[in-house]
């Protein structure tokens, strides 16, 4: 994805600079053709590919990634001005974690987003879509980290003066370590 965007950026900027700096570059192509090629032929396949990739990923998380419902791990994410609290209803003895979300790698996780005050929005850009946390509602979002690692998360709905600092970290652990980490019995870096 990164290299694709780099290639497109280079192509577009290269054409722009060539049109500005190289004498008579592109004069053989009519204005109408420039608009059709640059405005339709170039972006349409890219946008179509990205859209259907997003559709396929969404369907995979909802259906293909799990064979039975109990394979999905539910985690409650509660937003309040200006922090996130994460609790694990299916993991007995787990404390509430503030601004730190532990998930098992290679397993689909269902976030139940709620709010105690105003509308917030749960978003971990590298792990998929985002979902609003609305007071009085429980909205659900599925995410999945294929590899152990750290991922940045942020509130993506303006919620007051502390909104910009309402960030959290997602730590994806190996499945065998996950339970111990969540219950506090495993020290991690």
């Amino acid at each position: 994805m990164l290299w694709g965007s780099f290639a497109l950026f280079t192509l577009v900027l290269g054409l722009f600079l060539a049109a500005v700096l190289v004498p008579r570059f592109g004069r053989g192509v009519s204005q109408t053709r420039w608009i059709i090629l640059g405005g339709l032929v170039l972006p349409l396949p890219v946008l179509t590919g990205l859209t259907f990739y997003a559709f396929a990923e969404g369907e995979f998380l909802l259906k293909g990634a799990v064979s039975e419902a109990d394979e999905v791990l539910e985690i409650r994410a509660t937003g309040r001005m200006w922090q996130w609290q994460f609790s694990y209803p299916s993991v007995s003895g787990s404390p509430v974690h503030t601004d730190l979300l532990h998930i098992p790698a290679g397993r689909t996780v269902e976030i139940i987003a709620e709010s105690e005050d105003v509308i917030h929005s749960f978003w971990v850009p590298r792990l998929g879509g985002k979902i609003d946390a609305v007071p009085g509602h429980s909205n659900r979002l599925r995410i999945r980290a294929d590899q152990p690692g750290r991922y940045g998360g942020i509130c993506s709905e303006y919620c007051g003066t502390g909104h910009a600092g309402m960030q959290f970290e997602v730590q994806a652990h190996r499945q065998e370590d996950f339970r111990e980490v969540v219950t506090g019995g495993f020290r991690h870096d």
């Binding site: 179509t48 369907e59 259906k63 419902a69």
Partner: peptide, 15 residues
């Protein structure tokens, strides 16, 4: 046609 075609085949709600 492009944006709304998903109503025919995409999963509509969380399972």
């Amino acid at each position: 046609a492009f944006c709304f075609a998903g109503v025919f085949w995409l999963t509509l709600c969380p399972l």
